[in-house]
């Protein structure tokens, strides 16, 4: 009797890239729902538009690169990148801002570098930084929590980039808590004075702390499922907490407390979902600790002294650059090698 030949192993745990990506997307859902509970339909619309753009541009690039279309579109990686990007962009973004950011993420940061698995930079963060640098004035329109925008109004802003003149923009938008602190400090107010604003909640910003909590939940579930490793979120959060803690102890009037740093802005989202992007992160255990600590430190530095409201995107991209070097110097000791 004759049989077909292949090489061992003949077993597989049936994990797949598409499955991994899908799990990450599932883990984003609670945070996304809480986000849109506080800020309305805009969030959902932004994500939908980004995902649509991502799928179309991915399909286009795959066609141009003569790659099997259905095979790669099913891997869910484009949707995940787009989803993360949409979460990072301001809640009130015009359609073209989202489209440009997504196109840049998928076309340039991903496919021009060789597609899935070959991009040295986190595509979502590249897309974010491009629009952040190119259109800074459009990156400031954040809705106030419970601003009360309905679906048609959200859609209207997305399409036209403005609302009916009957609505006063100032009454529905506000700076983010991190930005508020930055502006407040530059006006020589103390943290205590700034935090008296209704924008601030128990530990982070009003609403933002709940959103961060929901993302934390999703992140912990990913950890539990073994989809992400513990080193990156742990190291990033700890490094921010330690730095923030030191400065807070030195001068609590000038520096916000560590918990605020962790639960505002995109810290939690970045620690569990963005810095953990396997393609652009370090791959060794020690390397991941160093890589994520670098992101934490840079984020804190840019937030506190830099010119941008939140430094996560820059911190991630800067550390992406350092990955090959980190990986090279953090190879584990091979079993049986000297120097145990």
């Amino acid at each position: 009797m004759q049989f077909q030949k292949t090489t061992s192993p003949y077993l597989h745990n049936n994990q797949s890239v598409s499955h991994v990506m899908r799990q990450v997307i599932y883990a984003l859902i609670p945070g996304t729902l809480v986000y849109s509970y506080f800020f309305g339909w805009s969030i959902i619309l932004n994500i939908a538009l980004a995902c649509l753009t991502a799928l179309l541009s991915e399909a286009l690039m795959l066609t141009l690169r003569k790659r099997p279309l259905a095979f790669y579109l099913r891997d869910n990686s484009a949707i995940l990148s787009a989803w993360l990007l949409a979460l990072a962009l301001p809640s009130l973004s015009p359609w073209w801002l989202i489209v440009i950011a997504t196109l840049f993420a998928i076309v340039v940061a991903k496919h021009l570098y060789g597609g899935l698995g070959y991009n040295p930079f986190n595509p979502a963060m590249v897309g974010y930084v491009v629009v952040m640098i190119s259109f800074p004035q459009h990156m400031t329109l954040w809705l106030q929590p419970n601003a009360g925008l309905d679906f048609s109004q959200a859609l209207q802003f997305l399409i036209q980039g403005e609302l009916n003149s009957s609505i006063n923009m100032d009454s529905i938008t506000s700076a983010t808590p991190i930005d508020t602190i930055k502006t407040g400090l530059s006006l020589n107010n103390t943290i205590a004075e700034i935090s008296a604003s209704p924008l601030f909640g128990h530990i982070g910003g009003t609403a933002w702390e709940w959103i961060a909590g929901a993302f934390l939940l999703g992140g912990l579930w990913l950890l539990y499922r073994g989809i992400i490793n513990w080193q990156i979120p742990f190291s990033m959060l700890v490094s921010i907490a330690i730095l923030a803690g030191i400065f807070y102890l030195v001068d609590p009037q000038q520096y916000s407390n560590p918990l605020f740093q962790l639960f505002s802005g995109g810290t939690i989202l970045a620690a569990f979902f963005i810095a953990t992007d396997p393609v652009s992160a370090s791959t060794t255990a020690t390397g991941r600790l160093i890589y994520a600590a670098g992101i934490g430190v840079l984020t804190f530095i840019i937030r506190t002294w830099g010119g941008y409201p939140d430094g996560i995107a820059f911190a991630v991209l800067l550390m992406n650059m350092a990955v090959p070097t980190i990986d090279y110097y953090t190879q584990p000791r091979v079993f049986g090698a000297p120097g145990k």
């Binding site: 991994v20 095979f71 396997p278 060794t284 079993f335």
Partner: peptide, 26 residues
């Protein structure tokens, strides 16, 4: 026989292989 016969995807550098390697290789 649970090895998929379809084409492999590109490596996404997830490091799952590293985590299970008994020789501690990369």
């Amino acid at each position: 026989f649970s090895v998929s016969s379809s084409n492999p995807m590109p490596c996404i550098r997830c490091g799952a292989c590293m985590d299970v390697c008994p020789a501690k290789l990369l």
